[in-house]
Design a protein around this nucleic acid. Structure first.
Lengths: 156, 156
DNA sequence: TTTGAAAGGCAATGGGT
DNA sequence: ACCCATTGCCTTTCAAA
């Protein structure tokens, strides 16, 4: 992993459909060299996939919310995680340190469907004692672009 | 926007590099028809872009955290938003309803760089009175796949 | 690990329904 | 709005260094 790999990763994060030739010119390699580097980055799971980004409101999902979930005992964690994986409204689920056991990021059509998710689904999962919902008013920034840490840029 | 558009969107979210021919076969259209639909979805900003997904830890970012930020008066919101847009560690910034004014999702190399971000950057922005940091232990799920709401699937 | 050249596959275009 | 057919570009592969 050298500076050229980082530039390739950066370009593909900004435009997942950038052609190998475009990247090659930008980083100063031949096109097959870029193809080979991308292949290895995918193989090593540095690049884990490609996706189209979509405007959620144009698919009828007007509500974004963060839900803190408190679970009374760690023995319920595994079951909770498995349940949550099956819920399409839950985009992210993180186990966290602090008052809450989990933080979820969810997208739903409206406040009614958010309420359904809360009372009919999440609160019925074993061990869930409390949920703490924070509704998003406006999203200032919402990206996935990951930058290499300064440490890696110097060494390696 | 009909059922075929939704399938195209779904396939491109799952694989941003799916070929038009693959999609065409899956939805029962010709390749140029799919190309035209994708072009219009992009034009209408339903599809907003394409990106490679990357394993943040393999780029040296081991810490994910959510930071609740309290700002003493709305007059500071605009300035805060602009500052936050320039910070690469901040992947998401949402203005929210509740105790906190903003919720940020950040990725940093380690706890030291997270601490730097907190005390040297965020806490020095005008109007910021308090930050409330929740560190992620493990991420169960982290995707961007947005599904069309049930309402849209029936009508439209 | 790279380059350069060749071959196969894909996306973009235009005419026709 | 779609299909079909063609053109041109892109990716993949391979020989060679």
């Amino acid at each position: 992993m050298d500076a050229q790999d980082y530039r390739i990763i950066d370009m593909l994060q900004r435009d997942g459909r950038a052609t190998q030739l475009e990247i090659a010119r930008a980083v100063g390699l031949s096109q097959p060299a870029v193809a080979e580097r991308i292949r290895k980055l995918e193989e090593r799971r540095v690049i884990t996939g490609y996706t189209a980004r979509v405007d959620a409101t144009k698919l009828g999902n007007d509500i974004t919310a963060f839900i803190g979930v408190n679970i009374e005992h760690p023995k319920y964690f595994e079951n909770f995680a498995q349940k949550v994986l099956t819920l399409p409204e839950v985009l992210e689920a993180h186990r966290v340190a602090g008052q809450d056991s989990y933080i979820l990021k969810v997208r739903t059509a409206n406040t009614r469907t958010l309420d359904q998710l809360l009372v009919e689904t999440l609160r019925t999962i074993s061990g869930v004692t409390r949920t703490n919902t924070t509704i998003v008013l406006t999203s200032i920034k919402e990206e996935t672009l990951v930058q290499p840490s300064a440490v890696l840029l110097k060494g390696d």
